[in-house]
Amino acid sequence: MTLEISRTLVDAILEQSRVEYPDECCGVILGAIGSDKALRHKPMINAAHSPTFYEFDPKDLLALYREVDDNDEEIVVIYHSHTETEAYPSRTDIAYAGEPGAHYVLVSTRKEIATTPEFRSFRIIDGLVTEEPVTILE
């Protein structure tokens, strides 16, 4: 279990987290069904507009799933940012994680340890969090 992702996509997610700060940002990366390849970036609107919560708008969510189905894609990565805390799934992240097949990516915009941007990936299945290595393709 490793997440392989291009430098361009990593940078795009980190940039989105900075632009949307102080709110959490969120989005998905899609890939061909069954491929586990994170290729097509789709930033989503955080309907909660909150520094401590994110939620895809229910209408956007349905449109996303329809699009994914129509394109024979799957949601490979679901990401969001933490604004002031570690890039590690919070209790609510774990409670609401509904895609057992997805890589849950967390980034953080907290300032105190900003030397290297935090970009981490997890599986969240039945309340169990497993961190996995991230391979960035240059």
Partner: peptide, 10 residues
């Protein structure tokens, strides 16, 4: 009818 889990968290 379509059922989808919210994509949400904190």
């Amino acid at each position: 009818i379509t059922i989808l889990p919210a994509v949400a968290g904190g």
